[in-house]
Simulated scan of single mutants.
Amino acid sequence: MVDVKTVLLNYKIGGNISIKKINSGRTSQVYQIISNEKTWILRTLRDETQGLLEFEITNHIREKAKGIVPRIICTKEGHPFVKAGSDLYQLQEYIPGQTPPRNKEVHSIIGKVTGQFHSAMESFESNRNQRDRFHLMELWEMAQEKWESLRKYSPDIVPNLQDMESKIDELAIVSEHQPHFIHGDLGTWNMLFDHEGIRIIDFGESRKGHFYFDLATAITSSIPEACDRRTQQQSVFDVLKGYETHREKIETDRLYTYIELWIYRGVLATLAYTNTAEQAVSHFVLLKQMENLLKK
């Protein structure tokens, strides 16, 4: 096991260092680092491609849209991460804040920040790319044998196997349209909100894709659940209007297709990795909700 204090010797971050582990996920360990100079975040990376691509993307965004992403700190030798045994570590600025609350003012800011991010990324280019770890067809292969059981659990909302196969084929074609680099996981769980606005964090899933995929994720994760349809519709409107202050007018039907892509991925990932029928069905409930908000 790597000693985190040994990793930190590669950085100029001051003394009197304290270390607190704040997250342990399937693919990353995250630590809060406090020194006599500042607070930082140290996280593990999957591989060098992730580390280099994240560094390129965040530097590009910081030049084009200041203040919406944290800075990645280079080592004393100028490297964007540290190799320690078989592990890779990345140090970045600590950004205080919380997950954005689901209210009118914040929905507009979510749209604006997402639009700023996409405007910046339109000119970004890299020879690197990451594979989609939740590729639709791969998820379908893993979840297909569990489909009939899910349909029995909720036959009124879960499509039959034949209809599902047709939808997967349709969305697989959509997912292959990849004109730009995207965040890849731009839900509110990867946004931090405070009095200065919203910052976007964790570019670990960044890859080539379509901007509407990010926007679909931002919308579906930010819409309030326990409220009336009119309030929810206004929330979607506020996100889209905020987005359009930095981008072109939204093609609603096309956006809905990417909402379908995001939600169907969620259904299949739930079946593939947790096999939780109730949670999988909740994705279909959300999809119906989004259809009512965007297409009626």
Rank of each mutant, 00 (worst) to 15 (best):
P70D: 04
Q98V: 15
K112E: 15
Q92V: 05
I110M: 13
I73T: 02
Y89Q: 05
G97D: 03
F117A: 07
R62D: 13
I57N: 02
G78E: 06
S108R: 15
G85T: 10
R62L: 15
H60V: 00
I57K: 06
T49A: 09
V113C: 06
K83F: 00
Q116P: 00
N59I: 02
K83H: 02
P70L: 08
L88C: 04
I95E: 05
G85K: 10
G51Q: 04
P80Y: 12
I57V: 09
E93D: 14
I61D: 04
I73H: 13
F55R: 10
A84H: 03
I61Q: 03
L91C: 06
T58C: 07
F55K: 15
E48G: 00
P80G: 05
T99V: 11
P96L: 06
P100M: 13
E56Y: 09
V82R: 00
F55I: 09
I72T: 00
H79K: 15
I57Q: 09
I73F: 12
G97V: 04
Y94H: 11
F117V: 09
I61P: 04
I68N: 07
E77D: 11
G51N: 04
L53V: 05
Q50L: 11
Q98A: 12
T58D: 05
E54F: 07
F81D: 01
P80H: 06
G78K: 05
